[in-house]
Each structure stands twice: as structure tokens, then as C-alpha cells.
């Protein structure tokens, strides 16, 4: 379970990327908890997309939980 910040964008993307990378290395399943998240931007979306592809290669799993309807809409626009 990885708690995602209120907002993920270019400004904090590096730390998000690093945490997700660490998480993916040690866990076989990463659940991104978006309960507190109100907004992500393209950079966050592409990190998640890329991480998911990587997870598939590693036979691991990344899933998303706690997304508000707004977030869900946004995620679907980001191809997630």
C-alpha cells in the first residue's frame, strides 16, 4: 500500500517516482492509495503507466484504490 499525496505534479514527481520505484522493487503488489489525492498531472500518469508495464514484466501488480469520481475521470483520460 502506497499512500499518494494530495497532489502529484512535476514539482514532486521525482519523489513520487523514487518511492514507487522502491515500492515496486520490494513488493510483489503495489496498491496506490488515492484517497487523499485530488489531482495528478501527466507526469504522474506516465510514471504510473510505465510502472504498470514494468510490473507486468516482473510479474508483479500495481493497482489503484480510493480514487474519487473526479480522480477516476482524470485517470481514464490519462489512459489508466
Amino acid at each position: 500500500m502506497m499512500k499518494v499525496e494530495t497532489e502529484v505534479n512535476v514539482k514532486n514527481i521525482r519523489s513520487f517516482y523514487t518511492s514507487l520505484k522502491n515500492e515496486l522493487e520490494k513488493e510483489s503488489e503495489v496498491i496506490l492509495d488515492l484517497t487523499d489525492t485530488v489531482r495528478i498531472d501527466s507526469s504522474a500518469a506516465q510514471v504510473i503507466i510505465s510502472a504498470m508495464s514494468r510490473a507486468a514484466v516482473l510479474n508483479k501488480k500495481i493497482s489503484i484504490t480510493g480514487a474519487s469520481p473526479e480522480m477516476k475521470a482524470l485517470l481514464s483520460l490519462a489512459g489508466l
Binding site: V10, I13, Q46, S53, R54
Partner: peptide, 13 residues
């Protein structure tokens, strides 16, 4: 998604 580099090589910015 093909345009997005491998996770390891990704420059998130």
C-alpha cells in the same frame, strides 16, 4: 504507451 520509456530509464520530468 509505447512512447513512454521503460520504468527504469524514465525521466519523470
Amino acid at each position: 504507451k509505447k512512447r513512454i520509456p521503460d520504468f527504469e530509464k524514465l525521466d519523470p520530468e
